[in-house]
């Protein structure tokens, strides 16, 4: 399992495509209405949007991923780091931010490789 983290627009998916030779067909891009991840794709990107969907439904995204870890062992997982701003006023945004933190910690713990992208440059964290 590979986990790639970084701020928005930092080149996470571009890095994944190049390093792991992914094609468009390999990538499942989560949207805000993504309630279930497509486990047949090698790469799942936009996990923060999946997390937002789960939080809106009153569920814990880390738990949802925990149940699917077996199927994600060979996956490239990508999430935007949303942890570095001011504590949001909106309770939903607060819950989202914290749920993403738990999700990211879980994925970084389980992954064999963890990368962080900064201005297009990769930094290996694990």
């Amino acid at each position: 399992m590979v986990f790639i983290l970084g701020g928005s627009h930092q080149g996470k998916l571009e890095f994944a495509r190049a390093r792991y030779a992914l094609t468009d067909a390999d990538v499942f891009l989560c949207a805000e209405d993504t309630a279930e991840i497509n486990l047949s794709r090698r790469c799942v990107a936009g996990l923060e949007r999946f997390a937002l969907n789960r939080v809106r439904a009153g569920a814990e995204p880390a738990d949802a991923l925990c149940e699917r870890l077996g199927a994600l062992r060979d996956s490239v997982l990508i999430a935007t780091d949303i942890s570095c701003g001011v504590v949001p006023v909106d309770p939903l945004m607060r819950a989202w931010r914290e749920a993403c933190g738990r999700m990211n910690n879980l994925l970084a713990e389980e992954a064999d490789e963890v990368w962080r992208l900064f201005c297009g440059l990769p930094q290996r964290l694990k």
Binding site: G6, G7, S8, H9, Q10, T80, D81, I82, S83, C84, G85, V86, P88, M93, R94, W96, R97, C100
Partner: peptide, 9 residues
């Protein structure tokens, strides 16, 4: 400025 990591839409 690194303005890419806050929890906001």
């Amino acid at each position: 400025d690194f303005i890419y990591s806050d929890a906001a839409l």
